[in-house]
Computed example of a mutant assay.
Amino acid sequence: MKVLSIGGGGGMGRTTARTALGFPFVEEIVLAGIDHERADRFARSLNDPRIRAIYLDITDENALRQAIRQCDVVLNSAGPFFRFGLPVLRAAIAEGKNYCDICDDWEPTLDMFALDEEARRQGVTAVIGLGASPGIANLLAVKAAEQLDEVHELYSAWRLSNAHNEDDGFFDENEANTDAAAVHLVHCLSEKIPLVRDGRVEDRLPLEHCGFDYPGVGKLDIWTIGHPEAVTLPRHYTGLRNCLNGMLGVETIIDDLHQLADHVRAGAMSLEQAAALLTSDGGREKRRQRLQEHEGPDAPGILAFAGGLKDGRPARAGARLRHVPSGGMSAVTGIPHALFLPLLHQGAVKGSGVFSPEQAIDADAFFALLNGFVEGRDCGLTVTFAH
């Protein structure tokens, strides 16, 4: 299997590449992006003849398609995806190549679903949003929903304090400041989200509060954010009355987040300016420390909650991980992305078309593979249930 890793020199892409090199069926990995110097330095550091780097400007459609033409599978880590997701998928489908990305924006997710018929005609399997959230969160939702006969509510959530990267030796000053992840976060806080609330799809502003009783844990509070789970899960679980994705444990900074989002919506600052404000002068680390001061030692990091009926009675179910791969956000996103390759190789991914993770991937097969990348060889998948 020959793999083209677009954006492969970035933090997520580097983890994806390291993981993919561990699969014996992978013959070649080509890291492609505009930061060729860093990608090349990283590739050479691995001392493996199967990996190399090329310069690629993905806004150059001819160059993009030529690079894709040489591979079997495209792994796309190039964000923000509201800018770069759709054109890369379109090129992969045009070249008849299987595809997976870590798209965490809902708008391009819907645009990419519109390419489903074309992907089927070309015999392409494309999974969008296979990282942490979306990705792990979606498949936790599958495990929670499996406990019920009817699912009426489906929530996924993650802890913002976990959204940090650890220096792998190739972290540079630009990546530490106004990076794609920070731009993405501001975008998700400032744009309306089409949420299923009380059985209707409504465009709602982010940072709405929602509380629910998670079985075995108790009351949890989350604040909505514009991630794709809120628009993909209702496509798979029809008839939901409420569905959203949110952040856990942001009570102490919620006013700051509201203020930042208001400034962007009012045009007082651009996405890039707001992202720079979030990350300047150690802002990301200070925010993380502030959040962690108010978290308990057993605070869940990523989870899903389902409410509905079991045996005709109201019931609740939850699914969460006790452990995730070490290495910060890059690891918990990049490793699931790389797992697309063995899942595809094993036949644990649905046939041709454009899919979200819950539509295409065998959740049990995914978590079995993830176990191999968590300290102690067990991610601690915990499913709880209560009437």
Rank of each mutant, 00 (worst) to 15 (best):
V186M: 08
E118C: 05
L148T: 06
A145N: 13
G79I: 00
G129E: 02
K97R: 15
E166D: 06
H187Q: 05
A141Y: 03
P108H: 09
F84N: 00
A92D: 04
E107M: 13
D168C: 15
L75V: 13
V74A: 03
H187W: 13
A176P: 03
N165H: 12
N174Y: 12
D101F: 05
A119H: 02
S161A: 15
D179T: 05
Y155D: 06
C103R: 00
A141R: 01
I136H: 00
I102E: 00
F81M: 06
L75W: 01
N165C: 11
D116F: 07
A92Y: 02
P87N: 07
L110H: 06
L195F: 11
K97H: 12
I102V: 14
L89G: 01
V196Q: 05
C103W: 00
F81P: 00
V186C: 08
A91I: 03
S161T: 10
V142T: 10
G85N: 04
A176D: 15
N162T: 13
E118D: 08
C188A: 12
H184G: 10
L140F: 14
G169M: 10
R90H: 10
L139H: 08
T178W: 01
G96S: 09
E173F: 09
A180S: 14
G129Y: 02
K143R: 11
D111S: 11
A180L: 07
N98A: 14
N165I: 14
A145C: 14
H152Y: 10
H187D: 05
Q147H: 07
L148Y: 09
F81N: 00
D179Q: 06
D198A: 15
V127S: 01
N138P: 07
H152Q: 11
G169I: 11
R159C: 05
R83Q: 11
F171R: 14
E150A: 13
H152N: 10
E150V: 13
E173M: 12
W158H: 08
I128A: 01
C188F: 03
V196I: 12
V88T: 04
G135K: 02
S156V: 14
D168H: 13
K143A: 12
Q122P: 03
N162V: 09
L185C: 07
D116P: 04
A157L: 13
C188M: 08
N98H: 15
D167Y: 09
A157V: 14
S133I: 10
A119D: 04
E150P: 01
A181K: 01
H164Q: 07
D105R: 02
P87Y: 06
L89E: 01
L115P: 00
H164K: 07
V127K: 01
S190F: 05
A181R: 00
E191T: 10
V73M: 07
A141E: 03
T125V: 15
L110E: 13
V124H: 01
A163S: 09
